[in-house]
Nucleic acid binder design. Structure first.
Lengths: 150, 150
DNA sequence: GTGTGTGCAAATAGTTTGCATTCGG
DNA sequence: CCGAATGCAAACTATTTGCACACAC
């Protein structure tokens, strides 16, 4: 059960009629414990540590299921890297990716809602969602960069 | 030479010491003429029409080169679809993707600069860049949706 | 018990690389 | 000419699928 996020995800799975199997619990626990934003390889490796018999196909299928059920969110950084995070209720945040060490932190400020209606008026689209990722150097890498230059 | 965007890209290649070959010109012309935001498959298919002998590897290598030289921009939509567009000078825009028909239009309003310094203060990151994509229904698909519901 | 879920391996898709040949400058 | 660029095929990586078996309910 590990923590609240894990518990909520497991209950949601069950509520929607899916079986709570060993592999699924292991995957959900891994995601719930993970403080970073792991990619597929990290998830697979991390789960293997606790559940050695698991196969890649199961991880792919389970992540796909969790995404479909809106339990999991996928974000894309650096054009082609897919990362995952369990959804939390009412948590609208975006990601700030360090271009030096790839560390990712979350930020809550999002000004998109301020211009959303303007864009709707101009374009006549009805906007449902958006993604926003920012890139820059973290404090540590700013320091390293100073050192490199001497 | 086709148009200004093509001309500018070709000159930039030459200026940086790369050869202006048939395949490269065909790829640049295709990108410069393209009004939509094509993906790799569309680019390859489109160029084959004009330059039948071209190989996939050349397209991959050329797109990689143009990205590296900052002549081309890649955007990611729907988590895992990579689309390309030639860069134009001083053109800061983002993309609005129709969740019905996948049509993409550009919008110029971007409120990120308003919160950028706030995020820098809070996080101590130095922000260099950002991506923003919005999703919603285009006017046409909003109509179709009404019809479907009767 | 029953049918969903799993692991494995094979199939598929997407991208990169090695190398002989071609071609732009 | 000469070296960079190309086309082809093979290699490599990532993801999906088919199927016999296992396990949650």
């Amino acid at each position: 059960m590990i923590n609240n996020a894990s518990k909520a995800a497991q209950e949601e799975l069950k509520r929607k009629g899916y079986k709570l199997t060993g592999p699924r619990i292991a995957i959900i626990n891994y995601l719930a414990e993970s403080q970073e934003h792991p990619d597929m390889q990290q998830i697979f490796a991390g789960i293997r540590a606790e559940y050695p018999g698991i196969g890649m196909a199961t991880v792919y299928r389970t992540l796909g299921l969790l995404l479909e059920l809106d339990i999991l969110r996928a974000i894309t950084v650096n054009k082609n890297q897919l990362l995952y995070e369990l959804k939390k209720p009412d948590d609208h945040h975006h990601h700030l990716v360090c271009t030096g060490c790839s560390q990712i932190i979350e930020f809550g400020s999002c000004s998109f809602k301020h211009i959303s209606s303007e864009i709707e008026t101009v374009t006549r689209y009805s906007i449902e969602d958006h993604t926003l990722e920012a890139y820059g150097l973290c404090p540590q890498c700013q320091g390293d960069f100073q050192v490199e230059r001497g």
